[in-house]
Amino acid sequence: MTSTTRLLEGLGRIYVGLLLAFLYLPIVIMALMSFNASPFYQLPFEWTTKWYSDLASNAQLLAATWNSIEIAIIATVLSTLLGTAASIALFRYDFRGKRFLQALLLPPIAIPWLITGTAMLIFFFGVGIGRGLHAILLGHVALALPYVIVVVSARLQTFAPELEEAARSLGASQWQVTMRITLPWIMPGVIAGALFAFAVSFDQFVVSYFLSTPGQATLPVEIYAAIRKGFMPEINAVSTIIIVVSMGLMLVTARFFKFGGEK
Protein backbone atom coordinates (compact mmCIF):
# COMPACT_ATOMS: atom_id res chain seq x y z
CA MET A 1 0.00 0.00 0.00
CA THR A 2 1.36 3.39 -0.90
CA SER A 3 1.80 6.07 1.76
CA THR A 4 -0.69 8.46 0.14
CA THR A 5 -3.28 5.70 0.06
CA ARG A 6 -2.66 4.96 3.73
CA LEU A 7 -3.03 8.64 4.63
CA LEU A 8 -6.28 8.97 2.68
CA GLU A 9 -7.68 5.79 4.17
CA GLY A 10 -6.81 7.02 7.66
CA LEU A 11 -8.60 10.31 7.00
CA GLY A 12 -11.55 8.31 5.66
CA ARG A 13 -11.79 6.32 8.87
CA ILE A 14 -11.66 9.49 10.95
CA TYR A 15 -14.38 10.97 8.78
CA VAL A 16 -16.68 7.98 9.30
CA GLY A 17 -16.02 8.26 13.03
CA LEU A 18 -17.08 11.92 12.96
CA LEU A 19 -20.22 11.06 11.03
CA LEU A 20 -21.12 8.41 13.60
CA ALA A 21 -20.54 10.95 16.37
CA PHE A 22 -22.90 13.34 14.59
CA LEU A 23 -25.52 10.61 14.16
CA TYR A 24 -25.39 9.48 17.77
CA LEU A 25 -24.93 12.85 19.48
CA PRO A 26 -28.64 13.60 19.96
CA ILE A 27 -29.43 10.03 20.95
CA VAL A 28 -26.74 10.04 23.61
CA ILE A 29 -27.81 13.49 24.83
CA MET A 30 -31.37 12.32 25.14
CA ALA A 31 -30.34 9.25 27.10
CA LEU A 32 -28.22 11.40 29.42
CA MET A 33 -30.99 13.96 29.93
CA SER A 34 -33.38 11.19 30.93
CA PHE A 35 -31.18 10.82 34.03
CA ASN A 36 -30.69 14.56 34.60
CA ALA A 37 -32.60 16.16 37.46
CA SER A 38 -33.36 19.49 35.75
CA PRO A 39 -36.66 19.32 33.89
CA PHE A 40 -35.42 22.10 31.63
CA TYR A 41 -32.32 20.15 30.58
CA GLN A 42 -30.03 22.54 32.41
CA LEU A 43 -26.48 21.59 33.14
CA PRO A 44 -24.65 20.74 35.37
CA PHE A 45 -25.75 17.17 35.27
CA GLU A 46 -27.43 15.82 38.35
CA TRP A 47 -28.26 12.15 38.48
CA THR A 48 -31.88 11.09 38.99
CA THR A 49 -34.22 8.28 38.04
CA LYS A 50 -37.21 10.46 38.82
CA TRP A 51 -38.37 10.62 35.21
CA TYR A 52 -38.48 6.86 34.97
CA SER A 53 -40.67 6.59 38.04
CA ASP A 54 -42.82 9.46 36.77
CA LEU A 55 -43.17 7.55 33.53
CA ALA A 56 -44.46 4.50 35.39
CA SER A 57 -47.39 6.58 36.64
CA ASN A 58 -48.03 8.51 33.42
CA ALA A 59 -51.03 6.55 32.16
CA GLN A 60 -51.47 8.57 28.98
CA LEU A 61 -47.89 8.04 27.81
CA LEU A 62 -47.91 4.37 28.74
CA ALA A 63 -51.17 3.81 26.90
CA ALA A 64 -49.76 5.52 23.82
CA THR A 65 -46.64 3.36 24.03
CA TRP A 66 -48.70 0.18 24.14
CA ASN A 67 -50.83 1.43 21.26
CA SER A 68 -47.69 1.97 19.23
CA ILE A 69 -46.31 -1.47 20.01
CA GLU A 70 -49.59 -3.24 19.31
CA ILE A 71 -50.20 -1.41 16.05
CA ALA A 72 -46.62 -1.98 14.92
CA ILE A 73 -46.82 -5.72 15.62
CA ILE A 74 -50.19 -6.19 13.92
CA ALA A 75 -49.18 -4.00 10.97
CA THR A 76 -45.92 -5.95 10.61
CA VAL A 77 -47.68 -9.31 10.58
CA LEU A 78 -50.39 -8.21 8.16
CA SER A 79 -48.14 -6.35 5.73
CA THR A 80 -45.55 -9.14 5.75
CA LEU A 81 -48.18 -11.78 5.00
CA LEU A 82 -49.94 -9.81 2.28
CA GLY A 83 -46.70 -8.45 0.84
CA THR A 84 -44.95 -11.82 0.66
CA ALA A 85 -47.97 -13.39 -1.06
CA ALA A 86 -48.05 -10.57 -3.60
CA SER A 87 -44.28 -10.80 -4.20
CA ILE A 88 -44.51 -14.51 -4.92
CA ALA A 89 -47.39 -13.92 -7.33
CA LEU A 90 -45.47 -11.15 -9.10
CA PHE A 91 -42.43 -13.41 -9.35
CA ARG A 92 -44.11 -16.63 -10.38
CA TYR A 93 -46.72 -15.45 -12.85
CA ASP A 94 -46.53 -13.36 -15.92
CA PHE A 95 -49.66 -11.56 -16.98
CA ARG A 96 -50.89 -8.46 -18.72
CA GLY A 97 -50.74 -5.44 -16.44
CA LYS A 98 -47.99 -6.83 -14.22
CA ARG A 99 -45.73 -3.87 -14.84
CA PHE A 100 -48.60 -1.57 -13.95
CA LEU A 101 -49.16 -3.38 -10.66
CA GLN A 102 -45.46 -3.08 -9.89
CA ALA A 103 -45.52 0.62 -10.74
CA LEU A 104 -48.44 1.07 -8.32
CA LEU A 105 -46.09 0.26 -5.45
CA LEU A 106 -44.19 3.46 -6.08
CA PRO A 107 -46.74 6.11 -4.99
CA PRO A 108 -47.00 5.00 -1.34
CA ILE A 109 -43.19 5.20 -1.09
CA ALA A 110 -42.65 8.27 -3.22
CA ILE A 111 -45.51 10.54 -2.17
CA PRO A 112 -44.75 12.60 0.94
CA TRP A 113 -46.51 11.16 3.98
CA LEU A 114 -48.06 14.55 4.57
CA ILE A 115 -50.11 14.12 1.38
CA THR A 116 -50.91 10.45 1.99
CA GLY A 117 -51.89 11.19 5.57
CA THR A 118 -54.20 14.08 4.79
CA ALA A 119 -55.75 12.11 1.94
CA MET A 120 -56.48 9.21 4.30
CA LEU A 121 -57.97 11.64 6.80
CA ILE A 122 -60.36 13.05 4.20
CA PHE A 123 -61.35 9.67 2.77
CA PHE A 124 -61.72 7.75 6.06
CA PHE A 125 -63.74 10.63 7.45
CA GLY A 126 -65.90 10.76 4.32
CA VAL A 127 -66.76 7.06 4.11
CA GLY A 128 -67.36 6.65 7.83
CA ILE A 129 -64.22 4.75 8.79
CA GLY A 130 -63.39 7.76 10.88
CA ARG A 131 -60.25 8.30 12.94
CA GLY A 132 -58.73 6.25 15.72
CA LEU A 133 -56.47 3.27 16.22
CA HIS A 134 -58.24 1.15 13.57
CA ALA A 135 -57.70 3.90 10.99
CA ILE A 136 -54.05 4.22 12.00
CA LEU A 137 -53.58 0.47 11.58
CA LEU A 138 -55.27 0.56 8.18
CA GLY A 139 -52.86 3.29 7.10
CA HIS A 140 -49.73 1.71 8.54
CA VAL A 141 -50.27 -1.60 6.74
CA ALA A 142 -50.69 0.24 3.45
CA LEU A 143 -47.52 2.27 4.05
CA ALA A 144 -45.48 -0.80 4.95
CA LEU A 145 -46.77 -3.08 2.14
CA PRO A 146 -44.70 -1.62 -0.72
CA TYR A 147 -41.52 -1.86 1.36
CA VAL A 148 -42.19 -5.52 2.10
CA ILE A 149 -42.93 -6.28 -1.56
CA VAL A 150 -39.81 -4.48 -2.78
CA VAL A 151 -37.52 -6.21 -0.26
CA VAL A 152 -39.01 -9.69 -0.72
CA SER A 153 -39.00 -9.31 -4.52
CA ALA A 154 -35.32 -8.41 -4.41
CA ARG A 155 -34.66 -11.62 -2.52
CA LEU A 156 -36.80 -13.60 -4.99
CA GLN A 157 -34.56 -12.37 -7.81
CA THR A 158 -31.87 -14.64 -6.41
CA PHE A 159 -34.21 -17.65 -6.47
CA ALA A 160 -33.81 -20.10 -9.35
CA PRO A 161 -37.24 -21.04 -10.74
CA GLU A 162 -35.78 -24.42 -11.73
CA LEU A 163 -35.82 -25.31 -8.04
CA GLU A 164 -39.62 -25.07 -8.06
CA GLU A 165 -39.76 -27.10 -11.26
CA ALA A 166 -37.41 -29.72 -9.80
CA ALA A 167 -39.61 -30.00 -6.71
CA ARG A 168 -42.73 -30.30 -8.84
CA SER A 169 -41.08 -33.04 -10.90
CA LEU A 170 -40.40 -34.91 -7.65
CA GLY A 171 -44.13 -34.96 -6.98
CA ALA A 172 -44.62 -31.93 -4.70
CA SER A 173 -47.82 -29.94 -5.02
CA GLN A 174 -47.75 -26.20 -5.68
CA TRP A 175 -48.54 -25.59 -2.01
CA GLN A 176 -45.78 -27.94 -0.83
CA VAL A 177 -43.32 -26.27 -3.19
CA THR A 178 -44.19 -22.85 -1.82
CA MET A 179 -43.94 -23.90 1.82
CA ARG A 180 -40.89 -26.14 1.57
CA ILE A 181 -38.78 -24.65 -1.23
CA THR A 182 -39.70 -21.05 -1.98
CA LEU A 183 -40.46 -19.69 1.49
CA PRO A 184 -37.34 -21.08 3.20
CA TRP A 185 -35.22 -19.56 0.46
CA ILE A 186 -36.75 -16.10 0.68
CA MET A 187 -36.98 -16.11 4.50
CA PRO A 188 -34.09 -13.62 4.97
CA GLY A 189 -35.91 -11.25 2.62
CA VAL A 190 -39.20 -11.78 4.46
CA ILE A 191 -37.55 -11.01 7.79
CA ALA A 192 -35.81 -7.94 6.39
CA GLY A 193 -39.17 -6.84 4.97
CA ALA A 194 -40.82 -7.37 8.35
CA LEU A 195 -38.13 -5.26 10.04
CA PHE A 196 -38.78 -2.48 7.55
CA ALA A 197 -42.51 -2.77 8.14
CA PHE A 198 -42.02 -2.57 11.89
CA ALA A 199 -39.80 0.48 11.56
CA VAL A 200 -42.23 2.21 9.19
CA SER A 201 -45.12 1.64 11.58
CA PHE A 202 -43.42 2.14 14.94
CA ASP A 203 -41.66 5.33 13.89
CA GLN A 204 -44.59 6.59 11.85
CA PHE A 205 -45.63 10.03 12.95
CA VAL A 206 -47.21 11.92 10.07
CA VAL A 207 -49.98 9.52 9.08
CA SER A 208 -50.74 8.59 12.72
CA TYR A 209 -50.90 12.28 13.57
CA PHE A 210 -53.70 13.00 11.10
CA LEU A 211 -55.63 9.82 11.93
CA SER A 212 -55.46 9.98 15.73
CA THR A 213 -58.05 11.29 18.15
CA PRO A 214 -57.45 12.37 21.74
CA GLY A 215 -57.11 9.17 23.73
CA GLN A 216 -56.49 7.13 20.59
CA ALA A 217 -52.96 8.12 19.72
CA THR A 218 -49.61 6.46 19.22
CA LEU A 219 -46.45 7.39 21.06
CA PRO A 220 -44.97 9.73 18.40
CA VAL A 221 -48.24 11.67 18.32
CA GLU A 222 -48.23 12.05 22.11
CA ILE A 223 -44.60 13.12 22.04
CA TYR A 224 -45.33 15.75 19.40
CA ALA A 225 -48.22 17.09 21.43
CA ALA A 226 -46.05 17.18 24.54
CA ILE A 227 -43.20 18.95 22.76
CA ARG A 228 -45.54 21.59 21.41
CA LYS A 229 -46.99 22.09 24.88
CA GLY A 230 -43.54 22.38 26.43
CA PHE A 231 -42.32 18.82 26.83
CA MET A 232 -42.25 16.40 29.70
CA PRO A 233 -38.94 14.89 30.78
CA GLU A 234 -40.64 11.48 30.95
CA ILE A 235 -40.50 11.46 27.16
CA ASN A 236 -36.72 11.27 27.34
CA ALA A 237 -37.15 8.29 29.62
CA VAL A 238 -39.60 6.42 27.41
CA SER A 239 -37.60 7.25 24.28
CA THR A 240 -34.42 5.99 25.86
CA ILE A 241 -36.09 2.71 26.77
CA ILE A 242 -37.49 2.33 23.26
CA ILE A 243 -34.24 3.14 21.51
CA VAL A 244 -32.28 0.75 23.69
CA VAL A 245 -34.82 -2.02 23.16
CA SER A 246 -35.24 -1.52 19.41
CA MET A 247 -31.51 -1.17 18.77
CA GLY A 248 -30.92 -4.26 20.87
CA LEU A 249 -33.48 -6.18 18.81
CA MET A 250 -31.85 -4.95 15.60
CA LEU A 251 -28.43 -6.04 16.78
CA VAL A 252 -29.72 -9.48 17.67
CA THR A 253 -31.41 -9.80 14.30
CA ALA A 254 -28.32 -8.56 12.51
CA ARG A 255 -26.26 -11.25 14.16
CA PHE A 256 -28.46 -13.82 12.50
CA PHE A 257 -28.80 -12.11 9.16
CA LYS A 258 -25.79 -10.34 7.85
CA PHE A 259 -26.74 -6.97 6.47
CA GLY A 260 -24.39 -5.18 4.15
CA GLY A 261 -21.33 -7.11 5.17
CA GLU A 262 -19.37 -9.34 2.85
CA LYS A 263 -21.50 -10.71 0.09
Binding site: I27, D203, P220, N236, S239, I243, S246, F259
Partner: peptide, 13 residues
Amino acid sequence: LLVILPFWSNGLV
Protein backbone atom coordinates in the same frame (compact mmCIF):
# COMPACT_ATOMS: atom_id res chain seq x y z
CA LEU B 1 -25.14 -1.40 11.19
CA LEU B 2 -24.37 1.65 13.35
CA VAL B 3 -25.20 3.96 10.44
CA ILE B 4 -28.60 2.46 9.73
CA LEU B 5 -29.47 1.75 13.37
CA PRO B 6 -30.92 5.25 14.04
CA PHE B 7 -33.68 4.36 11.54
CA TRP B 8 -35.05 2.19 14.29
CA SER B 9 -35.15 4.98 16.84
CA ASN B 10 -37.89 7.58 16.95
CA GLY B 11 -37.32 10.40 14.46
CA LEU B 12 -39.37 12.85 16.45
CA VAL B 13 -37.32 12.32 19.57
